[in-house]
Write a protein that binds this DNA or RNA. Structure first.
Length: 208
DNA sequence: TTCGAGATCGGA
DNA sequence: CCGATCTCGAAT
């Protein structure tokens, strides 16, 4: 996150240009940042990158009404509905016209925890937001939030606190992506106990 | 601790 | 027909 120095005390949300880079860089740099929606959120500990040339990217087969945000300007929330019951949230990355984004897969609940507990219907901290659909449900993210800019309220992405040591980030295969198209584009904070799947069951791969 | 089925619906 | 998933119950 070299071009985006962390703040001393008063957190300024990361600007739109933070997301105008390769989804791989954005995904890695988001680890340790704070994601907020409507006062609820916490420290991001797991992300995945999806790029247009990648068959499992929703934008691989061209622009549609559903994936339009992925093709739009960077820094907007791409929310999709899947498995007939779940929402997942991405942050569009790279240039307008290019389909790329970062899937928010897990965070450590810090703010608005009571709201998260209510929306999730359970209170186990380890299960509140550890998984893309869990995270979306915990924060109350659904269709309505599709396309919102993440640098403006009620959304915010805050940089890592200054002084805090940079998290150790490891890369693994992406979850739920079948073998052929697999790439080491899942990024995790190795020290976190709030991953959607423990590092012990998702072998670290070279980031190349 | 790990595995498999079912839930449930819009997209290709 | 199947997915960028989750939960629960059963087996290990």
């Amino acid at each position: 996150m070299s071009d985006f120095p962390s703040h001393p005390a008063s957190p300024e949300p990361l600007p739109q240009r933070f997301f105008a880079r390769s989804a791989l860089e954005v995904a890695r740099d988001l680890i340790g940042c704070t994601f907020l929606f409507g006062g609820a959120g916490g420290r991001i500990v797991e992300t995945e990158a999806y790029r247009q040339d990648d068959p499992c990217c929703h934008g691989f087969r061209g622009k549609t009404e559903r994936n339009a945000v992925l093709f739009g300007p960077p820094g907007h929330l791409y929310v999709y509905f899947t498995y007939g019951m779940h929402f997942c949230a991405n942050i569009a990355s790279e240039d307008e016209g290019v389909a790329a984004g970062v899937l928010l897969r897990a965070l450590e609940p810090e703010y608005g925890v009571e709201d998260m507990v209510a929306r999730r219907g359970m209170s186990e901290p380890r299960l509140l937001a550890s998984g893309p659909a869990r995270l979306a449900q915990a924060l109350g993210i659904g269709r309505t939030q599709n396309g919102l800019p993440v640098w403006e309220p009620p959304l915010a992405v805050l940089p890592r606190p200054a002084g805090a040591p940079a998290p150790e980030v490891a890369t693994t295969a992406r979850i739920g992506v079948r073998g052929n198209d697999q790439k080491p584009w899942r990024f995790v904070d190795t020290a976190s106990r709030h991953l959607s799947r423990p590092l012990s069951r998702t072998p670290i791969l070279p980031s190349g």
